[in-house]
Design a binder for these strands. Structure first.
Lengths: 197, 197
DNA sequence: TCAACTATTTAGACCGGTCTATGTAGTGGT
DNA sequence: ACCACTACATAGACCGGTCTAAATAGTTGA
């Protein structure tokens, strides 16, 4: 009886370790030990450590989608509220981890995109998908006159995600979620609020 | 005749390498080889690699201050224009590096602040100083009614820097400075523009 | 059942990581 | 000039990194 669980276990454990310690600082052996998989089996499942990197990105995005999709697709809330709530949900996860770890897309983006082209492209694709998801909602919000009409919604979606990543980074260094909360406040109560009819 | 130059050389070369490859991925031996310093001399100058990390942070901040201070202190420009110009200057440097490297404070923040408390604190201090510098100018801009009166300037200064870091990250992954330019546009032409008298 | 094949594991090659015990050379005090 | 002292360099210990050649275990088909 063959077992396929092993690869999933490596990805699961590896994702957690990389989120916590970074990609370079996480050794293959550490992952295997923690996943209780025999030393050396790693290279049956991944042809290189970089390919493992791609796998954890996919896993991270999948996990995150599972959490965020129901929120973004919740028709009972106005579009902009869904966007806001999706960010707040990630913030809650971040806080439950003592303001550590953060977002794999951001972490690997800074650590790897200069030197691992495949990783860079995978991250780019994931970020673009995320941007697309938000920009559709922002367009609806714009149609409903909830956000200013003169803003390009794709640009805004990308900027929202970027700024969120920046706030995540700032919160990590500060060990406090305050910058993330300020991000929510500034964007959703100040910058995007319609100041005139 | 003693030469004290060595330590500065290590810091100079090391800063460049860490900016390019990250902290974990940059080995002490690589730095020494590139700085043409005899193998092993490293630990005469730094008691640990972490302490070297602190030194390159200081060097990075010092270099950056040399570029930014004249801009931020330029009385011939209105305060908010100085803030904008300071960001544009960093963007120009980033573009001249093929949209790689980015900002050491952000890079190390994500890579190290969870596991190197001393580094985290040094980064926090540097970011706070930067925030302070900007918030003073923002306060002047607010007094001159250039930005909305209801915004807390310290919060805004921190958010500007965070969002800038996020845009830097996004631009790195995209290999294009467009997200950084959008950041400038959105903040300085949209979010902070006074839409009514 | 047994041979051929595939999936998994093992051991370890090989390299490069941080860091240290020791050696050497240059400096300053007397 | 000599001795103590400091600044620097050397070699290498020791560990852990990625990755691979070869052995083993499990599966399948005749």
């Amino acid at each position: 009886m063959k077992r396929i669980h092993n690869k999933d276990d490596i990805v699961q454990v590896g994702l957690d370790l990389v989120l916590s310690k970074g990609f370079s600082a996480t050794g293959v052996e550490t992952i295997l030990k923690q996943a209780k998989i025999p030393k050396g089996s790693f290279y049956n499942f991944f042809s290189s450590k970089e390919e493992f990197g791609l796998a954890i990105i996919d896993k991270f995005v999948e996990d995150r989608m599972e959490v965020l999709y129901p929120i973004l697709a919740d028709d009972s809330l106005p579009p902009l509220e869904r966007v806001k709530k999706s960010f707040e949900t990630i913030i809650a996860i971040f806080e439950s981890n003592d303001c550590s770890k953060g977002c794999l897309l951001g972490n690997l983006g800074l650590e790897m995109s200069d030197h691992f082209e495949n990783v860079r492209q995978r991250l780019e694709q994931s970020l673009q998908n995320w941007t697309k998801g938000l920009s559709e909602l922002l367009l609806q919000a714009q149609d409903a006159h909830t956000i200013p009409a003169e803003i390009n919604v794709e640009m805004l979606a990308e900027n929202l995600i970027s700024s969120f990543q920046g706030a995540l980074l700032r919160s990590k260094v500060k060990k406090s979620a305050q910058p993330l909360k300020d991000f929510i406040h500034l964007y959703f109560n100040v910058f995007l609020s319609q100041r005139e009819g």
